[in-house]
Design a protein around this nucleic acid. Structure first.
Lengths: 236, 236, 236, 236
DNA sequence: GATGAATGAGCATTCATTCAT
DNA sequence: TATGAATGAATGCTCATTCAT
């Protein structure tokens, strides 16, 4: 687990810093024309705006205003509001799947690997609220934009492979039940990690308890790992 | 002009009945002005539109058009687009909690009661997609509208009481673990029942499998009951 | 021939007078809400703007500004810029064909009838420059808007009937040739009357002579009548 | 990137050859930078675009895209959209007058010369639709761009001289009437040849008959020659 | 000579809401 | 109670043109 890693970069959740980020950046920063930086800048701001306001609620003018460039460039690079929204989806989905790959759970014991996967999923959703919101928003739109993102489908199968591997090894070791469908299990893990973030506002209002509070956070993390392990483990 | 039309009883998804459609109705139907019916009609149409398009995406004109009345009446009764949206939220949250009361799980054995509660929750979310969507939408807006709905908070505590009762009786009977927080458990059940409905579009696109398919539906229902029971049951 | 008649009303070619026109108008003028007047007002202004600037060149803002109402009403009544343009086409084509009907050439001797028809056609084009310009503009667009005007096709056949009647009676009386196609003849008359108005600018620039000058006007009128009569008359 | 592409010799409608495409060309084709060819290429594409869309409707980007070069070059050579439009007008007017010179009607008998002139005018308009459209467009703009084309006025007088010569010789031979103004006659011939091409779309829609259809084409040609000859001939 | 990147002013259109009847 | 007409402020988008390399 690389907790405080650079995972926070793509979704800043705060205010984007227009200044050059890393080392190599500094050179580019002096260049007046830097298409890559312009595009990334637009994409970062758009991620926040879409995540905060939804596709319909987001305002192209509002995005442009917080950008280093003008509204015109937004259309120059992304064609339309929807094109920009799709680019945001593509980036954001790419980020989580890329990190998942870095887990290397195949090197761990099945139980520990499962725990690591659940903890990663928990932590990612807990931190990347923009991701959670964008997925939610996309579902409001019937996933019709993400469907057009070419890289989307391919990117998601990798998690399933990871789970399949864990289950297979767990079964072989006599630790896991043999009647579990990997996609169903993935849905289950996602549900537990996603819902408490995505619906934390209505939940907080209804029960006077904010699931994103640090104290609860730890308890939920343990609880979800526990629930999943109880579910997959063979009844001794 | 679709004046006296039947309003088509807009897609209530099966379960909820908003009011008795019995004898008394017939008289009202002949009356030229029936404020209650007009309001209910507006509310039904608005529920669909807001659920389908979101708060920002919904169009007042679109709602008015599918109504028996005019746009002006919509403002007359609900004050504003947001007022109407809040009225929809109030109705929709009222419906689920009212049905939950009807379960009478307190009369059942703890394990069976828990099963009944989970199954009800599963079925309700599975059928009331509009409810799921509206909750999702409300979370996009930080729950700021539901906060203003007076009846909201009171209505939700009842589920917690139900769970508390189940847990207490289960612990007393030596069936359940004693370290489970009722609100956490509610969140867990909600997560599992809500997510597969709310996020079924992105899920379906990503994994080529629609969680709302009848065959999956039954499997998920059993799986979720199983997971919750495994989670609450005392380790023999 | 009703020369100086009210034919000038529909296409004012000057500045539209927003004031009430006729007797009955006066009452309406006091009414704050008069949809018919509002629509007519928009249509009049739009006729000028489209005629002066073309469909692409015309600015919705410019039209709205010279109107008694706001831009919003323009969309309220005509749906879009193109919808408004089509409404203008419909009005303008309706006007000329309606006047043609009033000629009653069937009551005249074939030669005199033909002369009357040509003179009317000449006068109409000579005065209704907006009409000429709008037809020109529509041809730039391949007539694709006029095609959608339902009343269009039906309205134009009437001229052909008039010409057929004239030719038939002229042939019967031994005055006209029998080998003339009525639609071809209509095209011929139109050509001579239309071109000198529609292309008067390039013509004027090329030859330093403005075909719309009063002195030329009379000469052209006689010349065109002469040419058409020479063409249709039987070589004694 | 459509760098070295053949530019497809954009639809010249048959007659006009802008430059010798003979031997010398081949050498230039290999040269990396050929200003003359670049300019001609831009001009050809612009002719089509302006003719198809009008001055306002034409898009600089659209022109540049179909060109071998970039938008920047378009500005480099022609200064502005309007400058390019003027260059197109100049080219297009130059072409017709140049061909008219080649007729050598002065060597023909007056009647045959007149016939030849009318037929040439007919054929030219019938084939060079781009020319007809551009003249139409220019008239929409009050001929203000053609006015700035220096070569324009001088170029047009030549036709008048041709007609004057024909009329004079015809009168002298006792074949033609002596009361015909040459410029009026030119206008008349132009009208008949221009209108059926320029207004063929509205005409076709109105009467269900396309004047550019081959069968009609021949009939119209004969008809127009006939009409003009009947008009100029002395009433024996 | 040549080019991708950048721009400000403008454009058609839509929205939630209110007025007059 | 009910309604067609009216509105101002925005909204997504485009255009001809220029800059930096």
């Amino acid at each position: 687990m690389k907790k405080g890693s650079k995972a926070a970069e793509p979704d800043t959740n705060g205010i984007v810093s227009h200044a050059p980020h890393g080392e190599g950046r500094r050179v580019d920063a002096r260049r007046k024309y830097d298409p890559e930086q312009t595009k990334r800048n637009i994409l970062d701001v758009a991620t926040q705006e879409f995540s905060a306001m939804g596709l319909t609620g987001a305002r192209v003018d509002a995005i442009a205003e917080r950008t280093n460039t003008t509204k015109r460039m937004l259309y120059y690079y992304f064609g339309s509001k929807e094109g920009l929204y799709q680019a945001v989806l593509e980036k954001v989905y790419g980020d989580i799947r890329a990190l998942e790959q870095d887990l290397h759970v195949s090197e761990l014991d099945p139980v520990e690997g499962m725990r690591a996967l659940v903890e990663f999923t928990f932590d990612y959703h807990d931190r990347q609220r923009d991701f959670v919101r964008l997925v939610t928003i996309e579902n409001i739109h019937g996933a019709k934009y993400v469907e057009q993102v070419k890289t989307f489908k391919g990117r998601n199968v990798t998690v399933i492979h990871t789970i399949e591997d864990l289950l297979a090894r767990g079964i072989a070791a006599g630790q896991f039940r043999s009647d579990i469908d990997p996609i169903d299990l993935h849905l289950m893990i996602s549900s537990l990690c996603f819902h408490r973030v995505g619906n934390r506002h209505t939940f907080g209002t209804a029960f006077g308890r904010d699931p994103s509070h640090p104290r609860l956070r730890a308890r939920h993390r343990a609880m979800i790992v526990d629930a999943i392990l109880r579910f997959v483990k063979k009844d001794d």
